[in-house]
Amino acid sequence: MNDNQLQIQGQGEALFPTQNSFTQTGDKNLQVVHADIVENHKHETMVINTGTAKEAQAMTNVATSGMNHDFYNLIVWGSDEISDNYVTIDKSRALTEYMTESVFAAFTPLTANKLSEVFRMPTIITSENHYYGYTDDDHMAKYGLITDIREVSSGFRIYFNKLNEIPQQRLNELSEELDLWSTTHFTEFNRSHWSIKNIDLVTELKKAGIPVLSM
């Protein structure tokens, strides 16, 4: 394990050290939580199914405080379709790239309080584009909430609850609106990683005619 990786260590410490660059060093920590919620929103029922008391702590925060619409999580994983309720991101690609300096600084160090905000952010979870810069029309991205994060030998296992599905090619087409790095032949959806964007995802999706659940 090198210094440019997230690490989960002792409770109460920071996940990232305070610094002004994208190189992470030193000890880091992640306090994780997830939950069970049933929330009625505009005549639709949203059910979040998870498990432990720690999970309940985080998801109750979402239910009582609402989503954090100032930011959103983008999680891109592998080349296979996502069928389970979690993905695993390499530590060297977790909150280390495709982020503005101001967003990186806002979540550095990633303390328990800042991590609670990560759980309140709407999240896009998907697999990599099938082609360079675009994907098939039936390739669906998942929209939802992160419910838990656990350190495993292969990286960070990020659990999520799906609320909607969105055609991924539509997201490719919204690269500018969603602050996604892209060129003609390559977009962020072509590389596995986890980043945070300073964009109101729900508003931008609805402006583009893509309805999603929010809290």
Rank of each mutant, 00 (worst) to 15 (best):
S92G: 05
N129A: 02
E151W: 02
R150I: 07
G66D: 15
Y143I: 05
S83R: 12
T108E: 00
L110T: 10
A58P: 01
I124A: 00
M99C: 14
I146F: 03
K114Y: 09
S116F: 14
N85A: 06
P122Q: 12
I124C: 07
Y86K: 11
L95W: 07
W77A: 05
N61H: 09
D90R: 13
D70E: 15
K142N: 04
D80H: 11
S83K: 15
M59D: 06
S116G: 02
H130D: 09
T60G: 01
T123K: 09
E81V: 10
G66T: 15
W77V: 06
T52K: 05
T88C: 06
Y72I: 12
T123R: 10
S65F: 03
I82V: 11
Q57R: 05
T135F: 08
N85W: 10
A141G: 14
S92P: 04
T60P: 00
T96S: 15
H69E: 03
F71Q: 03
Y72L: 14
R93I: 10
L110E: 04
V118A: 04
S153C: 02
N49H: 12
N113F: 01
F119Y: 09
I89V: 07
T100P: 00
V152D: 05
A112N: 15
I82N: 05
M59V: 10
T135Q: 12
Y72V: 06
N113P: 04
Y134E: 03
N68M: 04
K114L: 12
E101I: 01
G51P: 14
D80F: 10
T52G: 01
A63Y: 03
T64C: 01
D137Y: 11
N129K: 05
T147V: 07
L115Y: 07
F119E: 03
N61M: 08
N49C: 06
P109S: 14
Y98L: 06
G66P: 03
A141D: 07
G66R: 09
K91L: 15
A112W: 04
P109H: 08
A112C: 10
K142Y: 14
L110I: 00
R150T: 04
E117R: 14
F119R: 07
Y132E: 08
T50G: 09
I82Q: 02
G66L: 09
N73D: 12
T88L: 07
T50N: 02
F107R: 00
M59H: 08
L145T: 13
M46D: 15
I125V: 15
K142C: 13
Y72C: 06
S116A: 12
E101M: 13
T135C: 06
I89Q: 08
Y72D: 00
P122A: 13
G66I: 08
T52I: 04
L110N: 06
A106F: 03
D137L: 13
N129M: 12
T88I: 11
T126H: 06
A53F: 06
M46Q: 08
A63C: 04
L145Q: 12
A106P: 05
I89M: 05
S65D: 03
S154A: 14
E151K: 15
S154W: 11
R150K: 01
K142M: 15
N85V: 12
G133P: 03
D136R: 06
N85M: 09
A141E: 11
T147I: 02
I149E: 02
P122M: 10
Y132A: 14
N129Q: 09
S127D: 07
I89R: 07
Y86W: 01
T64E: 02
A94K: 02
D70M: 08
V76S: 04
